[in-house]
Simulated assay, not measured.
Amino acid sequence: MLADKAYDADRIRALIEGQGATPNVSAEFNRNWKPCFSKRLYRERNLIERFFSKLKHFRRVATRYGKLAENFLAIVQLASMLLWLGAYEATT
């Protein structure tokens, strides 16, 4: 499970491990014991969070005007394509 530093607590780590998952949580700076941590996975989590932040800039997605799930999914897909095209044009 990927999480932010806010979830760096022994009880949360124990809960995650108790459910059979491996926590990948960045340790707080004042922690004496530093658990295993993958920076590559943490970077990928950050990319996903930034994508959702950009997706919420589309008013129709953020306020969910379309009440039907199919319509909302179509708007999310359209906004995702627009974001991808914008990133693609910036690199060429």
Score class of each variant (00 low, 15 high):
residue 62 A to C: 08
residue 92 T to F: 11
residue 8 D to V: 03
residue 44 E to K: 12
residue 28 E to M: 15
residue 55 L to S: 05
residue 45 R to K: 14
residue 76 V to I: 13
residue 8 D to Q: 10
residue 90 A to D: 04
residue 48 I to L: 07
residue 91 T to I: 05
residue 3 A to T: 06
residue 67 K to W: 01
residue 88 Y to T: 14
residue 14 A to D: 05
residue 77 Q to H: 14
residue 21 A to W: 07
residue 54 K to T: 07
residue 59 R to E: 03
residue 48 I to Y: 10
residue 57 H to A: 10
residue 57 H to F: 09
residue 38 S to T: 00
residue 75 I to G: 09
residue 30 N to C: 12
residue 25 V to I: 15
residue 3 A to L: 07
residue 86 G to H: 07
residue 14 A to C: 05
residue 3 A to P: 02
residue 10 D to C: 11
residue 10 D to S: 09
residue 46 N to D: 08
residue 1 M to T: 12
residue 36 C to F: 09
residue 43 R to V: 01
residue 18 G to N: 04
residue 72 F to N: 03
residue 3 A to I: 01
residue 46 N to F: 07
residue 71 N to I: 10
residue 3 A to F: 10
residue 30 N to P: 02
residue 46 N to L: 11
residue 79 A to G: 02
residue 61 V to L: 14
residue 34 K to I: 12
residue 71 N to T: 15
residue 57 H to I: 00
residue 24 N to C: 14
residue 27 A to C: 11
residue 86 G to V: 06
residue 86 G to L: 05
residue 64 R to F: 02
residue 56 K to Y: 03
residue 43 R to L: 03
residue 11 R to P: 00
residue 48 I to D: 03
residue 44 E to A: 11
residue 42 Y to P: 04
residue 3 A to V: 04
residue 65 Y to N: 00
residue 67 K to Y: 02
residue 89 E to L: 14
residue 50 R to F: 02
residue 52 F to N: 11
residue 66 G to R: 00
residue 62 A to Y: 00
residue 87 A to M: 06
